[in-house]
Computed example of a mutant assay.
Amino acid sequence: MADVLFVLDPLSSINPHADTSYVMITEALRRGHRPFYTTLDGLALRGSQAWAHARALGPASDEPLAPLVDRGEPEPRPLSSFAVVFMRKDPPVDASFIAATWILDRADTLVLNKPAGLRDLNEKLSMLEFPQLIPDTRLLRKISDLRAALDDMGGSMIVKPLLGYGGKEILRAAHGDPNLSTILEIATADETRWTVAQQFIPEASVGDKRILLVEGEPIGAVLRVPAAGELRDNFHAGGQGIATELNEREWLICSVVGPWLRERGQLFAGIDVIGPYLTEINVTSPTGMQEVNRLGGLEGDATMQAKFWDGVEARLTA
């Protein structure tokens, strides 16, 4: 039995029916651990020592999928007093998020995922380490550069904000669209922000595959299918999940990306694949556990959260 700390958004934002952090916490309880939580504003440094205003938490009742509630008043504790600290604050990766990773650098205990990776492995750009696995992808700011990229990509591409998340502000730019100039102006905020331009992949119409990895090994996957008339397939944007298995190409992608993530201390990650291409690597609060569980009818030790905790406990005993 161990005290474990989760860095979360406010409890009211955690959906018991969908949130991956929820099942991570309930699995901790099932295994006899004592979960606590804090929010970003509860983190602090006292000199070089990292602290948190930590609250015990748990389900409001014994009913299935009961919401999480506080189980006591906040208690100032050094992060070193917890066996493991989980950084599960949702994006955006903004100034507050970055500052929190600096605090977590000084936790003097196991932190998952490793804070340096949370800072450095941008979800849109870290995949550039694997040019053989990805579609044509560029980081641009000038509209003239975006127009040139559109020409190079055959007249159709996706534009999305560098620090975007949850499917927000994803747009398709195409030759012949009378709104093309407006789309590029919106994407770059009139050339004031960096924009990721990515080759449009026709297989996107049948969805993208979220693959969950623990210690670099795939543990489950879900095919996210966009709603009718919708470009985006993110669950936050109304995408629907379909049970799926990995094909040969996806196993290859995992075999290349997984060890790279493990070496950088990213115990839990979600990678996205469309057709034959790796399109994103997600290390900041990846989602998908509950969808994989539900579609696969998984229970007990077969669930995604159980496999996650197997990895955590292996680290703790190593």
Rank of each mutant, 00 (worst) to 15 (best):
Ser126His: 02
Glu129Gln: 14
Leu146Lys: 04
Arg119Glu: 13
Gln132Arg: 15
Gly117His: 10
Asp120Pro: 00
Ala149Phe: 15
Thr137Asp: 11
Asp105Gln: 10
Arg141Val: 12
Asp108Gln: 15
Ile134Ala: 03
Lys114Ala: 13
Asn113Gln: 12
Lys114Ile: 01
Ser144Met: 06
Lys142His: 13
Ala148His: 10
Arg141Ala: 02
Ala116Gly: 02
Leu146Gly: 06
Gly117Leu: 04
Thr137Trp: 02
Ala107Pro: 14
Ala107Thr: 10
Gln132Ser: 15
Thr109Met: 09
Ile134Cys: 11
Thr109Ser: 10
Leu104Thr: 10
Asp105Phe: 07
Thr137Lys: 05
Lys142Thr: 01
Arg119Ser: 07
Arg119Trp: 00
Ala116Asn: 03
Asp136Val: 12
Ser126Gln: 01
Ala148Arg: 09
Ala149Gln: 14
Val111Pro: 03
Arg141Phe: 08
Ala148Val: 05
Asp105Ser: 14
Glu129Val: 02
Glu129His: 08
Asp105Lys: 06
Pro115Phe: 04
Ser126Tyr: 00
Leu125Cys: 08
Leu140Val: 01
Pro135Gln: 11
Leu121Phe: 08
Leu121Asp: 03
Ser126Pro: 02
Ile143Ser: 10
Arg147Lys: 15
Leu140Phe: 13
Val111Lys: 05
Ala116Ser: 11
Glu129Leu: 10
Ile103Gly: 04
Arg141Asp: 08
Phe130Ala: 01
Ala116Ile: 01
Leu112Asp: 08
Leu112Val: 10
Glu123Gln: 09
Leu125Lys: 04
Val111Ala: 07
Ser126Leu: 05
Met127Pro: 00
Ile103Trp: 10
Arg119Phe: 11
Leu128Ile: 05
Asp145Gln: 11
Leu110Val: 15
Leu125Pro: 01
Pro135Lys: 08
Leu125Met: 06
Ala116Phe: 00
Arg141Pro: 00
Asp145Phe: 05
Asp136Tyr: 02
Pro135Gly: 06
Ser126Lys: 00
Asp108Phe: 12
Leu128Ala: 15
Leu104Cys: 07
Lys114Thr: 04
Leu118Tyr: 10
Leu139Ala: 13
Leu110Tyr: 13
Leu104Val: 13
Val111Gly: 05
Ile143His: 03
Leu146Met: 12
Met127Ser: 11
Ala107Val: 10
Ser144Asp: 13
Pro115Trp: 04
Asn122Glu: 05
Arg138Pro: 05
Leu104Ala: 14
Gln132Cys: 12
Leu110Cys: 14
Thr109Gln: 07
Glu123Pro: 06
Glu129Trp: 01
Ile143Pro: 09
Ala107His: 05
Ile143Ala: 09
Phe130Ser: 07
Asp105Arg: 13
Leu128His: 08
Leu118Gly: 14
